[in-house]
Nucleic acid binder design. Structure first.
Length: 220
DNA sequence: CCAGACGTTGTT
DNA sequence: GTCTGG
DNA sequence: CCAGACGTTGTT
DNA sequence: GTCTGG
């Protein structure tokens, strides 16, 4: 799955890499992005505008927002049939920008889990395939939120964990937003080529979801 | 029909 | 053990 | 994902 | 909103 990730590049690099015309206010490099926090998403090919989204999908029908704390991932295999994701898959897809993600290797329950950082070998930023929705609170406040799609792990990630997030590289990511047929969309939902990725065991500092600092990506 | 759920992960 | 919050 | 909380009452 | 279970 994917329960933590990074976006460490600076705003100019990011805008250049994806051809973004706008990066929202408050952007800063992130070393430990955790569920419920704001992530940088893009919803439309036409304007290529980065937007803040809360990580953890809150469907429009939700009575309260706490369901979003659990819907941080959506399984690629069942997206098209689950009532919670079906309409978002058809019409509310997004990119979530990143340049790395963490997976934990279970240590059998005793000591804290060992985290591993996965990145592209060239260090380039990439996009996760995501879904978004807008939820309206009884107060009238609206929340734009998103979830990350997961698929079976490739052999590299599989050493650590059974599943991984769907990664779209910069060349293909816009097609994810534009595609219309189900079969075309499903083509994107496969494990990323392991030969383009690297894995680095990192400090357990990243285990603390409130710690967001370069030590999180420090090799050990 | 209405009422109630709607999700993933890991672990056992 | 299980749920919530980040 | 991991870390940390997990409860009620009355009183200030 | 949409699906499932009774």
């Amino acid at each position: 799955m994917c329960g933590r990730f990074t976006l460490t590049v600076d705003a100019e690099q990011l805008a250049l890499a994806f051809g973004l015309v706008e990066i929202p206010n408050g952007w800063q490099p992130r070393y430990n992005i955790a569920p419920t926090q704001p992530v940088l998403g893009v919803r439309e090919v036409e304007n290529r505008k980065g937007e803040w989204m809360r990580w953890g999908l809150i469907p429009s029908w939700a009575k309260d927002s706490t369901i979003g704390n659990r819907l941080i991932n959506a399984r690629a295999e069942t997206l098209a049939v689950r009532p919670t994701f079906r309409s978002a898959f058809a019409s509310r897809r997004c990119l979530v920008l990143a340049d790395g993600f963490y997976e934990w290797q279970s240590t059998g329950g005793k000591s804290p889990s060992q985290p591993f950082l996965f990145r592209l070998k060239d260090g380039a930023p990439f996009a996760f395939a995501g879904l978004w929705d807008v939820w309206r609170a009884s107060t009238g406040e609206t929340v734009l939120s998103c979830t990350l799609i997961t698929c079976p792990a490739n052999p590299l990630v599989g050493e650590i964990h059974e599943r991984m997030p769907v990664i779209l590289d910069r060349e293909e990511c816009w097609e994810w937003l534009e595609a219309h047929t189900l079969s075309h969309l499903m083509n994107f939902l496969r494990p990323y080529p392991p030969e383009k990725m690297e894995v680095i065991p990192v400090s357990r500092a990243v285990n603390d979801p409130t710690l967001d600092a370069p030590i999180c990506i420090q090799p050990v």
